[in-house]
């Protein structure tokens, strides 16, 4: 058995990092599936809500989602987090629960506004504003979108 172990060659990259293959299976599958279900349920109740301005049930589901992800230390993608209000836990769907606007607060004396100061503002119904400085780097990509390997798990 010892000889088999010694035969395994470990690859080291230029930065002195020991490379490894991606795992075939992931732990905590059930927790991820639970979070996924809660998110979808929250979106569905937002869309088919009886009381359009309150979304009480939908907010409850997404609050549960947030709590469970923190308790179980399971990470959620930034794209998914961006679609949930941090204060009232509403699912942010444009024209239904949120409004989007681009603001440019350039204070230069010249009439031309600097496009680098463009800020995308997402206004939730509760009054909270999410701000994304899109003018700083228009080609900005999230780390999870840059270089990764993705696997889709079959749900049961």
């Amino acid at each position: 058995m010892k000889t088999n172990k010694s035969k395994k060659s470990h690859q080291i990259d230029e930065n002195g990092m020991l490379l490894a293959d991606p795992p075939k299976d992931i732990g905590n599958k059930e927790k991820f599936q639970r979070l996924n279900y809660l998110y979808q349920l929250s979106t569905w109740t937002t869309m088919t809500g009886i009381q359009p301005n309150q979304n009480g049930l939908a907010r409850l589901y997404s609050k549960d989602l947030d709590l469970i992800s923190k308790k179980t230390k399971t990470s959620i993608s930034p794209n998914m987090k961006r679609s949930i209000c941090k204060k009232c836990h509403r699912i942010l769907i444009p024209t239904i629960t949120s409004k989007t606007i681009i603001k440019n607060l350039s204070t230069s004396k010249s009439k031309k506004v600097n496009p680098k100061n463009d800020v995308l503002e997402c206004h939730c119904q509760c009054g909270v504003i999410k701000r994304y400085p899109i003018g700083q780097n228009r080609n900005y990509k999230l780390n999870s979108e840059k270089d990764n390997t993705s696997t889709a798990l079959d749900s049961t």
């Binding site: 991606p22 992931i26 996924n36 979808q40 990764n148 390997t149 696997t151």
Partner: peptide, 9 residues
């Protein structure tokens, strides 16, 4: 219901 899409970063 859509299956959960889990990425490995």
């Amino acid at each position: 219901y859509k299956p959960s899409d889990i990425k490995l970063v």
